[in-house]
Structures are given as C-alpha cells and as structure tokens.
C-alpha cells in the first residue's frame, strides 16, 4: 500500500521503526536516509544490513535500534541475505505457512517490504558479487547503498566509490600526492544494466524525491537499487551541522545528480524499454569547486600544484551531466 505523505512536518512525525538514539556520529546522513526509507511505507519491513557504521551502531547487544525484523550476517552478503529472505517469504506464502499475523497483513494488502542497507564498501567492493548475483536472479527486494565514498567504519580508507582527489587514510594527500587517483565507478548504471526494473540515485536532503523513489521501488516487482548520497561528517570532515548543506551542494553542482532508470521488463528479466529521468534540475548549476571547498577531505586540492584536479573534476561532472541529459532526451 502506498503511504500518503503531505508535508515534511507530518513525515517527520511518522511512527519511527528505526530508533534515532543510536551510536552513530552526530550529523550522520545514514540515520536520515534510513528513517526516510523506512517511513516511506506503513507496510511491514524486513531489513538486512551489511557490516558497517549502520550495523555496528544500531544493534549492539543487548540493545537494538530496530523495530522491524532485522538481520546482519557479514560485510559482503547483505544482498543475498535480503534476496533469500524474500525467497523464503515467497516459499512460505506459496505453502500457506506464513506466521498468522503476517498472513493477515498480506491479506490486507500489506506485503512485507524487504530492504538491504550497505555502505559503498559493502556494495561497490566486497559485496558486489553477492549484489550482482542477487539482481541477476531477480529476487523481489530493495537494495539501498549508503554511499559515503569511504570505509568510514574502519577509519576512512578509500573504496572504489572514493572520488578523485579525496584524501583518505589509504589514499592520503601528501607532498607528492593529491590523494585518490581514480574517479568513482558508476554504480547506478551498473545496476541498471543488470536489468533491474527500477534504479535511482537519491540524496537525503531532497527528501520528497527520495521518498517518491523508494515508494516507486516498493511498487515494482524485482530487485531495486537505490544509490543514496551519504555525506560523512567524520570522513568528509565537514561540521556535523553542515550535513544537509554539503548534500545540497553535491546535488546543485550536479556532482550527485538525482535521476532514475526504469527498465520495463517481464518476470524473465527480458527488457522491452529503458528510460532515464532526471528528477531534479538545479535552478542554477553551481561550480564543483564550491562542493569541494565545503569538505576538508579535498582541502589540498586548492594548493596551486593540485588545482588541475579541480579542473578535472568540473570536466568530469559536466560530461556526466551532459550524458544524463542526452539519455533523458533520447528516452533510453
């Protein structure tokens, strides 16, 4: 059932099934994203979480922040965990052996939503195989990547989502280095090319856009991938109170474009059409430099010898924005 949401005030007063009083850093985007995803529906939710900040901060025995069925197994298997819970649900539904209370909700049209949360390490890197397999098999679940572009839980090491020029603890800037050497990979397109019926990129600062996409994702049948920008106050090194502002800078500079890719497909994974929609267009596209300047992880780029990396950044973002617009125009 699609939940009707009128305004932020009402949304923010939703009955939380994720307890805010957890161990995450002040200003952490993960909290905001998880609340927005969970509050997008009133249907029952089952969550699988990869090892990472979210997991270690929300389920430390004997406490839990989760008022939904929740599982954590390991770092690299959140996708298969969620996918197999989904398969188990389908089997028990078919056999007529769901727990009675669950069966009642299903009868009322409130099917459980199965959601995996993982960081970029658990998604782009170590969990990629499991994610790819689960999407290929077509299980009915939503996978949300909390993308803070770094291994934050283990102290800020680079991942394959870390963008060029970022200083991390394993790609530190130094007298002869400007930090990370490679631009991050395009996870949204990679997952869309798996044939997923719905794939989207979101930012917690654009909450309406996020919730709308999550609701769309809950309505389709098959694997859904949501790539969520998760500004990390600790590793991006901005002030905790600046999280939303930094997120907005990412969106308005088009470093973090908000868009969706819809694959019209059948249950066999055969795709009949693909459509990319840009869901947010900045009124004024701000220079990437402003986004970088707001985050001390890029501070060294403003030294004269590293300025060329800022130029590269702008080129990369412009090219990507151009690419997305062309795809949208072409309807592919």
């Amino acid at each position: 059932m699609v939940k009707k949401i009128k305004n932020l005030k009402e949304f923010s007063l939703s009955n939380d099934r994720f307890e805010g009083a957890n161990l995450m850093c002040p200003g952490c985007s993960h909290n905001i994203i998880v609340r927005e995803v969970l509050n997008a529906t009133d249907d029952p939710i089952i969550v699988a979480t990869a090892t990472g900040c979210l997991e270690v901060c929300t389920a430390v025995y004997p406490k839990t922040s989760w008022d939904v069925s929740w599982i954590h197994i390991g770092f690299e298997n959140a996708a298969v965990a969620a996918a197999t819970v989904s398969a188990a649900y389908e089997v028990m539904k078919k056999k007529g052996k769901l727990p009675p209370a669950t069966q009642k909700m299903v009868d009322e049209g409130r099917e459980p939503k199965i959601v995996a949360f993982a960081g970029d390490g658990g998604t782009y890197d170590i969990g990629f195989q499991s994610l790819s397999g689960a999407f290929e098999r077509g299980h009915n679940f939503m996978y949300v990547c909390l993308d803070n572009e770094v291994y934050a839980n283990t102290g800020g090491q680079r991942s394959s989502s870390t963008p060029i020029g970022a200083s991390t603890t394993t790609s530190p800037a130094g007298s002869v280095s400007y930090g990370e050497k490679m631009m991050k990979k395009s996870m949204v397109e990679i997952m869309a090319d798996h044939g997923a019926p719905y794939v989207a990129q979101v930012s917690p600062s654009k909450w309406k856009d996020l919730v709308k996409k999550v609701q769309k994702g809950f309505e389709v049948n098959g694997p859904v991938y949501i790539n969520a920008q998760s500004a990390c106050t600790t590793e991006w090194k901005h002030a905790p109170e600046d999280t939303i502002e930094v997120s907005d800078l990412g969106v308005d500079s088009c470093v973090w474009p908000l868009y969706e890719i819809i694959n019209e497909r059948d249950e066999h994974g055969i795709i009949y059409s693909t459509k990319l929609n840009i869901t947010y267009r900045p009124k004024k596209k701000i220079p990437v430099e402003e986004y970088l300047a707001a985050q001390p992880r890029f501070r060294h780029l403003f030294k004269p010898e590293n300025r060329h990396i800022i130029d590269l950044w702008q080129k990369a973002v412009d090219a990507r924005w151009e690419y997305l617009q062309k795809r949208e125009e072409a309807g592919v």
């Binding site: 089952i46 699988a48 599982i71 197994i73 390991g74 690299e76 298997n77 298969v80 965990a81 969620a82 996918a83 197999t84 819970v85 398969a87 188990a88 649900y89 389908e90 089997v91 028990m92 078919k94 056999k95 727990p99 195989q129 499991s130 790819s132 397999g133 689960a134 290929e136 098999r137």
Partner: peptide, 28 residues
C-alpha cells in the same frame, strides 16, 4: 519438491542465503 532451489553465485552466498533463510524461519 515444494521448496525453492536457489543457484547462487558462490558458496559464500550459498551459506549466507541459508543463514538468512533460517533466520527468516524456514528450513535451509
């Protein structure tokens, strides 16, 4: 067989799937 056979992409995922299914409350 009434149950589901899931041919996963690795043994790591095979056992992970079993863990998730078992935690979901089914025989795996």
């Amino acid at each position: 067989v009434d149950g589901e056979f899931i041919m996963v992409e690795s043994e790591h995922s095979a056992m992970s799937g079993c863990v998730a299914a078992s935690a979901a409350g089914v025989r795996a």
